[in-house]
């Protein structure tokens, strides 16, 4: 397996500038044909062109493949041989991602080349997408996760219940208050059921067998 790391830059970037920045930061350059020979896919057939290749820690190597759409740069990261596990490769990906993000933050290339987003895709040796994709944890992604409906649904239900009871003036009518509370919970549960079915109707839900 191998990874492709795609960086979207804040501003257009020149391949030569990027190459010299990476050469300064990572060193350990290796000839491209040597890097191709180590790769599961490029060992079968080398690509027409790449920009630069270098060794990483953890027995991995990187090929700076291309700068495309002007704002994207793409890196091929793979283990030097088949003994490098996917777990080790993912550690190398993380370290490389952190390092290159820091380097492009302005030390060498100026703020224009800063990383706007970074995506890692895992591929089979034959070039097929595995469907596994990684992105760095950002304030935005954590915010989105924490404010997802499944996280805030209980609080919203309690809020809606309290609001209804106050609106109907039922704080002194315990029986009706209980009835309305139950009604609100049921309405939310029903809404959740319909929405869950609607969004998940074409997918399969996996679970761990208990016996």
């Amino acid at each position: 397996m191998y990874c492709e790391i795609t960086i979207r830059h804040r501003r257009p970037i020149k391949p030569d500038d990027l190459k010299s920045a990476i050469q300064q930061s990572f060193g350990n350059g290796i000839p491209l044909n040597q890097a191709y020979a180590r790769s599961a896919i490029y060992g079968v057939m080398p690509p027409p062109a790449s920009i630069f290749a270098f060794d990483l820690a953890r027995n991995c190597f990187v090929i700076l493949r291309k700068v495309s759409n002007v704002r994207f740069s793409t890196y091929h990261l793979e283990g030097t041989d088949r003994t490098v596990s996917v777990d080790t490769m993912l550690h190398a990906v993380q370290e490389f991602s952190e390092q290159i993000t820091a380097e492009l933050r302005g030390k060498t290339l100026g703020s224009d080349c800063r990383v706007r987003s970074l995506t890692v895709q895992l591929f089979e040796d034959n070039g097929r997408e595995t469907g596994m994709e990684g992105k760095p944890v950002t304030l935005g992604s954590v915010f989105k996760e924490k404010f997802a409906w499944r996280e805030i649904a209980p609080a919203v239900t309690a809020f809606a219940t309290a609001l209804l009871l106050i609106w109907r003036g039922l704080n002194k009518e315990p029986k009706q208050a209980v009835f309305y509370s139950l009604l609100i919970v049921l309405v939310f549960a029903l809404g959740d059921t319909v929405a869950g079915y609607w969004w998940g109707r074409d997918s399969m839900k996996w679970s761990l067998r208990q016996n």
């Binding site: 493949r65 091929h76 070039g127």
Partner: peptide, 23 residues
């Protein structure tokens, strides 16, 4: 068929993959 995030560029290995398949 190669599908993924439509905001992302085509994977850089796509060209080689296609040529290997063709060969």
């Amino acid at each position: 068929v190669k599908t993924g995030d439509p905001t992302m560029p085509l994977p850089s290995s796509a060209n080689v993959q296609m040529l290997i398949l063709k060969d």
